[in-house]
Design a protein around this nucleic acid. Structure first.
Length: 654
DNA sequence: GAACGAGTTTTTC
DNA sequence: GCAGCGAAAAACTCGTTC
């Protein structure tokens, strides 16, 4: 169809209603003929199974939107007035918490993968190129973006848009190398910088500015110059009072540029007022669609104007996020170390229903996942099988195990069971994910048989041993001991039960120190015996508890009950009597008290496993329920705002 | 009501 | 010449159990 024709409906230009992500404004795509891109994407997709599935998803979202509109229409004047008050109150509270004292920089490498490829192959310079394959593109350089080619676009569509497009295969070894170089630069300006991905990072340069006596703008220039010097690559930067704004700012003068948003309220509000909501990290295609079509919200400012409807329709946490966006608020703290929650892999292949072939795929994935886990020293307890059918429908099937696993044999064994239950099925993708991870901070592999507290309650199994086949003290044990400041008691070896939260803040030196103190205590004599389970030697022997107070491990010092076998016979905590030769029973009994204690701790103080620094941070975060929520959100820079919450109420109507 | 498991959805590059 | 749309992580829901 000629460009100057003026059709009157979607029937004439059906691609207009096909919502792809490819027309979303991205750096370097300002001059792109979006309609042309949309038409080509539509034409190449139309009639495919993928397309049909996209239409199904789209229809579902439209249904949700209709539902929300209906609910809006049903709101009485009283309701609207009520929610207006709720919104105003919340806005005032958020406003009161505004922090303009920090200077954050978001650094984003320009077309990173493509730039690295060009660096190693200068003949690519000036030519449209993309990193990826015919099925999917990871990133495209700026020459390619002029044609509408962009990340997450299938290669065959990209080639249609730009027949001259050169493809380079992904090479993560190279990208990691250059990423490390950039991180060394970041480190100089903020030792606690937050890496968002290989090519992005957030830096709190407040202190660096003070030390150097220069502005955020000057620091950003310095960082960018340093990165170029170290890598030969350009990057862009955004400077603002919080991470959310800094991220938006870094995109403004891309590539090889920067934008500074002054740390004052007027500047922030002016900046945010006309900003399209899609520019905000965490607001994606679906959220944009819903806010626009259900509430007529297109800009951040409108989040505030429609605050009453936002409060009426969305869950509290989502409403709060949207109102924060309207105020230009974002994370200003340096979040505590975030440990990963899951690890996964998935592979797409030519659709098949051949069971032997599918099992083989599963075997490959199990081996890959196991290798990845062992590289990072992870074990997990929940295995999730992800399947994508020939019709692009997604299914997940999960199983939670009694033990943590990491071997490919274990993964395959359980994954096979899950897959078997789905046969007959024709698939184009299989994925495996392990969650409920058991993480040790120094990266060493934990004993895969060590169990979580939950497992303990479920199974009562006490058979775990360390890699040397010896029983060992886990960090839960240490925490337990920390919490029992009992200089007179003697505590022997016992079963270990780990939960990842229990190990959060124990570093090597701390643990060594604790172990040394335990050793000392172990060597001191006592007339009572506790936790006598097996007579194997252990490097983490128990030491005098008095010194534990000095250790940098979180503990609730208020609780100092004694746990021991009085006269080697009677439990000091509950009075139950158990002869010394009831080894297994005593083990289970000890574990019960340990678990009970840990559970109390878990539900009680949040400071249990924190270093003093983290305790202080956590204290700030938990000062109110709303702040708790905010803290959690800020730790991710609001990057991920699941849409589920939109439907908290509306779901009930389906 | 808290905790947990299973499943789904969203976002990002 | 033809067909053809990824991978990883997290957050949140609902339902169940205790």
């Amino acid at each position: 169809m000629a460009k100057d024709e003026t059709p009157t409906s979607d029937d004439a230009r059906p691609w207009q209603s096909y919502h792809t992500v490819y027309t979303n404004a991205k750096a370097g795509m300002d001059g792109v003929d979006k309609e042309k891109v949309q038409r080509i994407v539509y034409e190449m997709s139309q009639g495919s199974k993928y397309f049909e599935n996209e239409e199904r998803k789209e229809a579902f979202i439209r249904q949700k939107i209709e539902n929300m509109r209906a609910r809006c229409a049903k709101l009485s004047a009283e309701d609207i007035s009520h929610f207006q008050m709720v919104a105003e109150k919340r806005i005032l509270e958020l406003e009161a918490a505004r922090n303009l004292s920090r200077i954050w920089i978001h650094v984003d490498m320009d077309a990173f993968y493509a730039a690295v490829e060009t660096l190693s192959n200068p003949s690519l310079k000036g030519k449209p190129m993309a990193v990826g394959s015919m099925s999917m593109i990871s990133t495209a350089n700026y020459e390619a973006r002029k044609f509408g080619v962009r990340a997450a676009m299938p290669g065959f569509i990209a080639r249609k848009l730009c027949p001259e497009l050169i493809f380079a295969p992904t090479d993560f070894k190279k990208y990691n190398y250059y990423s490390d170089l950039t991180r060394k630069v970041f480190q100089k300006y903020d030792p606690n910088f937050m890496a968002a991905s290989l090519d992005e990072a957030y830096l709190d340069v407040t202190e660096a500015c003070k030390e150097k006596g220069i502005t955020g703008e000057e620091i950003a220039e310095e960082i960018r110059a340093n990165i170029f010097e170290e890598t030969g690559l350009t990057c862009s930067a955004g400077v603002a009072a919080n991470r959310l704004l800094a991220k938006v700012c870094s995109d403004i003068n891309k590539p090889n540029g920067q934008f500074v948003l002054p740390n004052n309220r007027v500047a922030v509000m002016t900046f945010i007022s006309s900003l399209p909501i899609r520019k905000i990290g965490g607001i994606g295609k679906v959220t944009e669609h819903i806010l626009r079509d259900a509430l007529g919200i297109n800009t951040c400012e409108e989040m505030l104007q429609k605050g009453n409807y936002i409060c009426a329709l969305f869950s509290q946490s989502t409403a709060e996020f949207f109102l924060s966006v309207g105020l230009g608020l974002g994370g200003t703290d340096t979040p505590e170390v975030r440990l990963r929650k899951s690890i996964s892999n998935e592979r797409t292949f030519s659709a098949t229903g051949d069971e032997t072939l599918l099992y083989r795929k599963l075997e490959e994935l199990s081996e890959m996942l196991s290798a990845d886990m062992q590289k990072e020293g992870l074990c997990g307890r929940t295995l999730t099988l992800k399947l994508k059918t020939v019709a692009f429908e997604l299914r997940t099937r999960a199983v939670s195990l009694q033990k943590h696993i990491c071997s490919s044999e274990d993964i395959l064994k359980h994954a096979s069971k899950l897959l078997k239950a789905e046969f007959p099925i024709s698939l184009r993708l299989i994925g495996l994910r392990i969650s409920h991870l058991n993480i040790e901070r120094d990266g060493a592999l934990l004993d895969p048989t060590q169990k979580t507290l939950t497992n303990f309650f479920v199974s009562g199994d006490t058979s775990s041993k360390d890699v040397d086949g010896q029983r060992s003290f886990g960090l839960d044990t240490i925490n337990f001991l920390m919490n029992n400041d009992n200089s007179d008691s003697f505590i022997g070896e016992h079963e270990t039960h780990h939960t990842h939260s229990d190990v959060d803040d124990n570093d090597n030196s701390t643990l060594s120190s604790i172990a040394a103190q335990m050793e000392k205590f172990h060597n001191s004599s006592s007339d009572v015996t506790a936790y006598k389970v097996e007579g194997t030697s252990c490097p983490n022997s128990v030491t005098n508890g008095a010194n534990f107070l000095e250790a940098e491990v979180g503990s609730s010092m208020g609780q100092r009950e004694l746990f021991l076998w009085v006269n080697d016979y009677k439990c000091s905590l509950c009075g139950i009597e158990m002869p010394p030769d009831f080894v297994e029973e005593r083990q289970e009994h000890c574990d019960f008290h340990l678990a009970e204690k840990l559970q109390k701790e878990e539900s009680g103080s949040g400071f249990r496993n924190s270093t003093p620094k983290h305790r202080a941070e956590q204290k700030d975060q938990i000062s109110s329920p709303s702040q708790r929520k905010k803290g959690r959100m800020s730790s991710k820079e609001g990057r991920h705002i699941p849409i589920d919450v939109f439907f908290v109420k509306s779901n009930q109507n389906f």
